[in-house]
Design a protein around this nucleic acid. Structure first.
Length: 555
RNA sequence: GGCCCCAUGGUCAAGAGGUUUAAGACGAGACCCUCUCAAGGUCUAAUCUCGGGUUCGAUUCCCGAUGGGGUCACCA
């Protein structure tokens, strides 16, 4: 009695009783309103979340929200060798940092939704149902090739300048009888299960892409591995099965998947599943020795999203930057609508760029600067507190219990048309405001003050002493500055740079020099935010203490 | 190398046959403003890869070349 594929399938999967049509019932079609898209982000837990993944998940999440659909996360953890423990949870945490909260799916410590499990490693039974059925139809078969044999086949193909891969005459176990296969399996020979493709490489198929339009590409004829020797499915197979039974409508993924799309089409067809819609996103690239290349998880740690968070880029800045890559009209939209809120932006696939984009740090900086400047001092304080708690202990200790003081500092020149825009990230804040804190001030000036060498110490002392005894900075900024001019004039300084330039010999300097003396004494630096604000916040007592210290240092 | 995708300034890009002496933003430079640094204002430089077609006319359509990118695993 000869062995059939049916027997082989029963032998390999004795416990599998379900059929594909059972699964169809188990995972019924979703009840969604017209136009609602079901999309997913399907990361593999092999390392940190990088910019490209964030980009993809942002677009997916955005589309689901905009269409009233579903955005879910599926963990593609079928590569046990490359898996990094803990990275899956981290991925979810980082996504939530960007307010990308899945409607369902794998959520780090739990799952949510009716189409699970959402971890591929927990879906073995589902894949096996499909494989068993494929095998019964003769569309799947065991392959006993070793890595070495596969290597040899490839070498021959390369030498003959043929297309590499397991297909046609090179598919050595394609025509093995079920009987022989069964014998080998019984003998304990390791094997994988391959898909039997009926495709012809010479035929072209057309794949419709929501972003690119029709893509004509050679039909698949590869007998790809669908189940690895460890019993887990490969990406291609899991993609077809999962996206079908999770009722995904639209697969939005990176451009690097276009090349394998024919395999997916082949698989969907063989399984009798209607094809999902595809949208292939452009990849984010970087310049490497003058060459552009795809941002790589392994080679480019600087593309790690965690690093951007650590450096203190607001989530809104990353989101805005990524959206400007997705739809370049986003930037003009922000200008018109005076908001960087991507949730209000009308994103479309049509506006999507087709070419890979170079990562542009300057542009990210720009968004970040604008966004931080648009916040209230209170908002900045809260963000700073949250960020510093984890990434900058020194800052945290200084601001934790000084909310009012710190907020007043952060409020200097904030708001209005000419708002101060000097913070690219949270990490820029402290260096520019630390002098306000007494211990930091002491530290800054312990090696001296950066007074200009061409100013005589005696003169500086004279001016500063006069300032202390005469100045009243309870006046409004403009009037106050007039008193600084008067102070300068008393000591032979020109009241403006313009006047000084007209006759330099008549003056010892100009009012800018006077202001600088005060600034250097009080802040320990030649640069600072608005002097009047600084003095007001510090208060007369502290200002005078600092000035006296500076004078002391001049001797 | 085969196959696929792409092709406007340094970067992101408007443009969808004549209305373009080719928008805008970031970046760069200059000037103005100014008590410093930022910010703000004004201005400048900088682009249609190259050949063939089609057309009265091509940045725009077609073909080819060139260039860039992607992909060719028991990785996703």
């Amino acid at each position: 009695m000869s062995v059939t594929f049916n027997d082989l399938a029963e032998y390999i999967f004795p416990d599998v009783k379900e059929t594909i049509s059972d699964l169809e019932k188990r995972f019924p079609k979703r009840n969604l309103k017209d136009g609602a898209l079901v999309v997913r982000f399907a990361p593999s837990p092999t390392g940190f979340l990088h910019l490209g993944s964030l980009f993809t998940s942002l677009i997916n999440s955005k589309i689901a929200k905009d269409t009233g659909g579903v955005f879910y996360v599926r963990l593609e953890d079928t590569d046990t060798k490359r898996e990094i423990s803990g990275s899956a949870k981290e991925l979810i945490d980082q996504l939530s940092y960007f307010d990308i909260i899945p409607d369902e799916g794998y959520l780090g410590d739990k799952e949510k939704g009716d189409y699970g499990p959402y971890q591929q490693s927990h879906r073995a039974d589902i894949y096996k149902v499909c494989i068993k059925e494929l095998m019964k139809q003769g569309r799947a078969y065991p392959c006993f090739c070793t890595a070495k044999e596969l290597e040899e086949i490839r070498e021959v193909q390369e030498a003959n300048k043929e297309i590499p891969g397991y297909y046609g005459g090179y598919a050595v176990y394609r025509n093995t009888t079920p009987e022989e296969a069964l014998e080998k399996i019984k003998a304990g020979t390791p094997y994988v299960i391959r898909f039997r493709s009926l495709g012809n490489h010479l035929n072209k198929i057309v794949i419709h892409d929501l972003i690119r339009g029709d893509i004509a590409i050679a039909e698949n004829d590869l007998d790809v591995v669908i189940m690895k020797s460890d019993g887990l499915p490969t990406y291609h197979f899991a993609h077809a099965v999962d996206d079908h039974f999770m009722r995904t409508t639209t697969v939005i993924r990176g451009e690097e998947w276009i090349a394998s799309a024919p395999i997916h089409v082949d698989l969907f067809n063989a399984l009798g599943f209607p094809l999902v819609n595809y949208a292939h996103l452009p990849v984010i690239m970087k310049l490497d020795n003058g060459n552009k290349r795809k941002l790589s998880k392994r080679k480019d740690p600087e593309a790690s999203v965690a690093l951007f968070i650590e450096k203190g880029f607001p989530k809104e800045a990353l989101e805005a930057y990524l959206m400007s890559i997705a739809n370049s009209n986003f930037e003009e939209w922000t200008l018109e609508n005076k908001t960087f809120d991507i949730s209000k932006f009308p994103f479309t696939f049509e506006k999507m760029s087709l070419d890979g984009v170079l990562f542009d740090q300057d542009k990210l900086n720009y968004f970040s600067k604008e966004i931080i400047a648009s916040w209230s001092a209170n908002e900045v304080y809260n963000r700073l507190l949250e960020w510093s708690k984890q990434y900058d202990k020194v800052l945290y200790e200084h601001i934790e219990n000084t909310k009012e003081f710190t907020t007043s500092i952060l409020n200097i020149e904030r708001g209005g048309e000419k708002a101060r825009k000097d913070f690219i990230s949270y990490s820029d804040v402290y260096p520019s405001i630390k002098f306000f804190f007494n211990d930091e001030y002491e530290n800054i000036v312990k090696d001296g003050y950066p007074f200009n060498d061409f100013m005589e110490p005696g003169l500086i002392k004279e001016v500063l002493e006069d300032f202390m005894s005469s100045n009243d900075y309870s006046l409004p900024n403009d009037l106050w500055f007039n008193t600084v001019k008067e102070l300068g004039v008393r000591h032979k300084f020109a009241e403006s740079n313009k006047i000084f330039k007209q006759n330099k010999d008549a003056y010892k300097g100009h009012v800018g020099d006077v202001a600088e003396m005060i600034r250097v004494a009080v802040t320990g630096s030649k640069n600072s935010p608005n002097l009047h604000s600084v003095l007001t916040i510090l208060g007369k007592e502290e200002v005078n203490r600092r000035i006296n210290k500076a004078i002391e240092n001049l001797k």
